[in-house]
Computed example of a mutant assay.
Amino acid sequence: MNSYIVMQGETYREEKRLGIVRAPKKDKSGATPHSWERVNSLQKGDRTFHYVRGALVAVGTIQEDARVQSEGTPQAEWLAPCEYLELDTPLEIASCIKVVADYLPLKYSAFQPDGNGNSGYVFPCNESLALVFLELLSSSKWRNIEQLEFVYDAVREEKYNSLTAWMMDSEYLLRLKFRELKSQFKALQLERWENKCAICGLDNLALLKAVYSKAWKDSNDAERIDPANGVLLCANHAALYESGQISFTGAGTLRMSAELQPLAGRYGLKKNLRIAADEANIPYFRWHRNNFFIEE
C-alpha cells in the first residue's frame, strides 16, 4: 500500500462526484508533468489525502488499479476509481506545517515551507508523513499496535464507510509496512557489515543500528531495502550519521562537520578513517553528503 496527496482545487467536487482521480496524459505543450503521470501508479488499496484551497478536506481509497482512458485520442487520460470520505473538519496545512515539515521529501513535496501547496496534481506521501496526517486527523487514540492487530480482522470486513474504520486500517497497514521493510533492511545491513559497526567494529547486536544514507522519506520502496542505502553503526556513530555530523565519500572515507572535528577523539573518530564501502554505496553516500551533511 502506498499513499498519495491529491491537489485538486476546482476539480475536487466533480472528481468526488464521479468517484475518480484523473489526469490527462499530455499538457497543452505535449509534455507529461510528473504529478499527472503519477496517477498511472495508483493501485487498488492505495490511500489518498485530498487537498483543496489550503487544507486536507477528504481521504480516500483507490478501488481499482489505474487505467488509460481514450487512448490514442487528444482526450487520453489516466484514471483510477477512488472512494472519498470527507472530513468533518478540514486540516489546514499552514496551521500544522511545523509538524509536517520534517516529513516532507526534498523532491516532489506537495507543500512549500510556509504550508502553501505546490503546483501539480498527485504527489507521493511517504509513510511517516501519512502517519502524521492520521495523528492530526484522529479523534480516537488508536496508538497501540497490539490493539490495532486485535481489531484488524473486524475492521477489514467493513466497507470503508466510516472515517474511523479507514483511519484504523490505514494506520495498521502503514505501521506494518514500516516494520517489515525496516526489518528487512536491518537484516541486510547486519549481513553486509558482518554484524559489526562499520566505524569502530563494535559487535554487540543490542547496540547496533541500521541507518539510511538516503532518508526513508526520500526513498522509494526498492531503495528502502537496498543494502547499499545505509550503514550498520553503533548507537553513538548512528546518531552522528543521522544528525549529519559525519558522512562518507564514495570511497568510504569519513568526513566530519567542523563542529565535531575538535571532539573526534571522544567519539573514536579520526581524520581519513575509511570504512569498507563498495561502488554500490556511492550514489547513496553522495546523497547524504549533498543533502544532509553539515559541511566541514
Results as ranks from 00 to 15, higher is better:
residue 94 A to W: 01
residue 174 L to H: 03
residue 90 P to D: 07
residue 43 Q to G: 10
residue 112 Q to L: 12
residue 142 W to K: 06
residue 190 L to G: 04
residue 270 K to V: 07
residue 177 K to T: 13
residue 127 E to Y: 11
residue 117 G to C: 06
residue 262 P to D: 08
residue 186 K to E: 10
residue 215 A to W: 02
residue 40 N to R: 15
residue 280 A to S: 14
residue 140 S to M: 10
residue 77 E to M: 12
residue 137 L to S: 06
residue 111 F to R: 01
residue 133 F to R: 02
residue 105 P to T: 09
residue 11 T to H: 07
residue 80 A to G: 09
residue 142 W to C: 06
residue 284 Y to E: 03
residue 117 G to H: 03
residue 128 S to K: 13
residue 158 E to H: 14
residue 42 L to E: 00
residue 250 G to R: 07
residue 130 A to Q: 08
residue 208 L to M: 04
residue 59 V to K: 00
residue 15 E to C: 08
residue 125 C to R: 02
residue 8 Q to R: 06
residue 160 Y to N: 12
residue 93 I to Q: 00
residue 292 F to N: 13
residue 29 S to K: 15
residue 215 A to M: 08
residue 191 E to K: 14
residue 170 S to V: 02
residue 245 Q to M: 13
residue 76 A to M: 04
residue 129 L to H: 04
residue 127 E to V: 12
residue 181 L to Y: 07
residue 266 R to A: 11
residue 189 Q to S: 14
residue 50 H to I: 09
residue 290 N to P: 05
residue 133 F to S: 00
residue 2 N to M: 09
residue 288 H to V: 02
residue 17 R to H: 12
residue 71 E to R: 15
residue 266 R to D: 13
residue 121 Y to S: 01
residue 89 T to C: 08
residue 41 S to L: 13
residue 293 F to I: 04
residue 148 L to I: 09
residue 70 S to M: 13
residue 31 A to D: 13
residue 215 A to G: 11
residue 208 L to H: 01
residue 258 A to G: 10
residue 228 A to P: 05
residue 258 A to E: 14
residue 141 K to S: 11
residue 163 L to I: 12
residue 235 A to C: 11
residue 210 A to P: 01
residue 227 P to W: 03
residue 28 K to E: 07
residue 168 M to N: 10
residue 14 E to I: 10
residue 67 R to W: 05
residue 176 L to P: 00
residue 109 S to Y: 01
residue 170 S to N: 08
residue 85 L to I: 12
residue 118 N to A: 10
residue 219 S to F: 00
residue 57 V to A: 01
residue 96 C to G: 05
residue 105 P to L: 05
residue 205 L to D: 11
residue 147 Q to Y: 10
residue 141 K to R: 13
residue 176 L to A: 12
residue 35 S to K: 03
residue 146 E to T: 12
residue 79 L to S: 06
residue 188 L to M: 14
residue 252 G to V: 05
residue 135 E to D: 15
residue 186 K to V: 07
residue 20 I to F: 03
residue 227 P to K: 08
residue 126 N to P: 14
residue 175 R to I: 09
residue 133 F to N: 01
residue 295 E to D: 13
residue 228 A to C: 11
residue 51 Y to D: 00
residue 213 S to H: 04
residue 172 Y to V: 03
residue 92 E to Y: 10
residue 60 G to H: 01
residue 195 N to S: 14
residue 256 M to A: 08
residue 175 R to Y: 05
residue 56 L to A: 03
residue 83 E to C: 11
residue 47 R to G: 01
residue 190 L to T: 08
residue 138 S to F: 00
residue 151 V to H: 09
residue 138 S to C: 09
